[in-house]
């Protein structure tokens, strides 16, 4: 008998040959995304009087290649909130599946908790019943998820905007990124939008009070203007985009908007880039 306890219960080397150590786990944590591959660019959003407007173009880039031109990067949640994804598209799809599952679980939970009486068939409003997850709850959930993943060194490579209403039915807009950093502001933008769109949006909604004076039409116009500026200057952007408006009446999402009234006249005056010498 082999007197070494380390050898007990193991396949005998003289019968099976030495164990191939390469099957053993290598050290280091398990990781998925170490770098983003197929990416979406900016997501922008601005609050107004009774809700939030959000937009993102329909492009998924592979580096500088415009790889997929019909990718929906705004996802509605429980018809109460909108989630906009910038960054890695596969991580976005993972999160989207996860959120769909959560939405289904929530819907079942809620049906059990509150069985409507047979006579009560006038509840046709799209407003979420109390107790259902609102945008603030959803943002907290996503921020915990993202922070956990970064702490496991297995980040989801996204910056996410969450829009909807909070528990006091006030417009809610907040962001969470791949490190779990969260913040909120009357207007928000990810990626290139933080440089190009955010200054424009802040002209119209510098403070919460300013945002509370904006009408829905004004907010939509500002967002459309910003999408245009982004298309002018962001090389990884597209002129087809999704636009969502979320209010107490639910989510209105149009996923095939086309940029209107573009003017490239400004391009004539640009000097200093490329090969032209004058």
């Amino acid at each position: 008998m082999d007197h070494r306890p380390q050898a007990w219960g193991r396949p005998r080397d003289d019968v099976y040959g030495a164990y191939d150590a390469s099957y053993l786990q290598t050290t280091g944590p398990k990781t998925a995304t170490q770098a983003p591959v197929v990416t979406g660019t900016s997501v922008i959003a601005i609050k107004f009087k009774d809700g939030v407007v959000m937009a993102a173009d329909n492009l998924a880039s592979y580096g500088s290649l415009a790889r997929f031109t019909d990718v929906k990067r705004l996802r509605p949640f429980l018809s109460t909130s909108i989630v906009g994804f910038g960054g890695d598209v596969s991580d976005m799809q993972f999160l989207d599946r996860h959120l769909n599952e959560l939405a289904i679980d929530e819907a079942y939970e809620h049906d059990h908790a509150e069985t409507p009486s047979p006579s009560d068939d006038s509840t046709t409003t799209t407003q979420p019943p109390r107790g259902q997850l609102n945008a603030a709850n959803l943002h907290k959930y996503l921020s915990k998820l993202m922070y956990r993943r970064r702490s496991d060194f297995d980040p989801l490579w996204n910056q996410i905007l969450v829009a909807g209403l909070d528990s006091a039915s006030k417009p809610f807009l907040a962001s969470v990124d791949l490190r779990g950093t969260t913040f909120s502001s009357p207007s928000l933008a990810t990626g290139f939008g933080a440089m190009l769109a955010q200054p424009i949006m802040r002209r119209f909604a510098a403070t919460e009070e300013d945002a509370a004076k904006l009408t829905r039409e004004q907010a939509v116009d500002v967002v459309k203007e910003c999408m245009k500026v982004l298309f002018y200057r962001d090389a990884r952007s597209l002129d087809r985009y999704s636009l969502a408006v979320v209010t107490k009446d639910g989510v209105e999402l149009r996923e095939d908007e086309q940029l209107e009234k573009q003017s490239w006249a400004f391009a004539e005056r640009i000097r200093g880039y490329g090969t032209q010498t004058v």
């Binding site: 990781t31 170490q34 770098a35 983003p36 591959v37 990416t39 660019t41 880039s61 592979y62 580096g63 500088s64 290649l65 910038g86 960054g87 970064r150 702490s151 060194f153 980040p155 490579w157 910056q159 791949l178 490190r179 990810t190 990626g191 290139f192 962001d234 090389a235 990884r236």
Partner: peptide
Amino acid sequence: GPNYSISDAPKEDAPEGARQHRFDP
């Protein structure tokens, strides 16, 4: 390798042999 428009673009690979995490938490 792809180029990125978002700010958290991966950094250059570590010197040969040394594999390190590119994600800075």
